[in-house]
Design a protein around this nucleic acid. Structure first.
Lengths: 121, 121, 121, 121
DNA sequence: GTGGTCTAGACCACA
DNA sequence: GTGGTCTAGACCACT
């Protein structure tokens, strides 16, 4: 994983983990890597790893059992809801910005259709 | 203007100025407010105001004439190009994020079509 | 028994056992469940079960006879004394906290009188 | 300030700050000590100080402006509501525990009335 | 072995 | 000066 210098590392890892959860690569109830494992996996300090889980826990993505580890929240509906929430947030922000630039919804859609597939690969 | 606590103020002001340029509320060659005026207009610290112009100058949006003030770059094509550049950057980022969430381009478009107009007002 | 994630499991079990003693559901001299039985009863790791008795023994609530098991201390007065001690500790801590919040003893009492019975059910 | 070994230092500081807010020793909008000042005041590491504010911010007690400092939430009603919430939480927990020990509400009240003033001073 | 806390010290971005 | 992030390394409590 390459880190963007402008965004805090822990944020980037959180984003990555969230995506994995939302895309069902990680499942409710599943054990997440331990702090130390996460630190190795993402090449961060164990402290930073701990911070990542703590933040995610505060947001309800996972919970932790002392001496056992950190686990993904066992809420079946959560994943789909989160996916929609995240998409809506993205969408709403994107549309607002585009409309601020003076693009109509029609123009936006045709821009998406024209957008080169290669660039997003 | 209400400032978001999470994003640096100077960035928010720069974004606002860029939008004004792109939307043709500010024109090439036009004189921009002085540092002090900008500070008052946007209710920011004069240091911050200075940084804003410095940053925009570095990006080629404006230039300074000693004793005269700061002016928008007199590049006729700039506005339209800038608009496209910004739109492309937005678009590319947005599509990447949505595809990371597992949405196909088709789904994205239909989501945009369904998106409630009210919410973006 | 539902465990609170924030409090160590062994503490929660100890608290529960103490309450049972104090409420005379368990009597002086009575044999307590074996480590293994306790582990099953409370759905904890046998290591944790062992720790629970070790801790309670250190506090004088019970004692172990090799090959026979663990028994509640045969002190007739213990139950009543324990009950008072626990109540006093609770009371003292509670009053201190409430007074720190700026409540007078009078206010505290009237709050208790008003407190909805339902909520404590 | 003397720290209890059993409770994390940052929790104890948070509790102390919350009490000060709730008792109106600290007011909405007021600037809190800087991270570094707090570290000195409470004799903790600057990192711990930062953590304290971050936690309190997550709970809505304060907000922070980069380069300026951390400020108490400017919500006039917040303080009184918080005071009531905290009192209710204390009360409810206390009553539950006491009733688990087999005390009636009447007994609890008379215990409070008898409780030696000196001990809570 | 797991997470939780804490210290020490560093560098950076922001106002 | 302010807060934000990160590393390094330590000790502890819990399972």
């Amino acid at each position: 994983m390459d880190y963007n210098v402008e965004i805090p590392i822990y944020m980037q890892v959180i984003r990555d983990l969230k995506k994995r959860i939302v895309r069902r690569q990680l499942h409710p109830g599943e054990k997440l890597p331990s702090n130390r494992e996460l630190a190795v996996l993402y090449k961060v300090n164990p402290n930073t790893a701990a911070r990542i889980y703590k933040e995610m826990e505060a947001e309800g993505y996972c919970y932790t059992k002392r001496g056992l580890g950190t686990f993904i929240t066992e809420d079946e509906k959560m994943q789909e809801e989160l996916r929609k929430e995240m998409a809506d947030a993205l969408l709403s922000g994107f549309l607002k910005e585009m409309q601020d630039l003076g693009f109509s919804r029609k123009e936006i859609i045709s821009k998406i259709e024209e957008f080169d597939e290669e660039e997003t690969a």
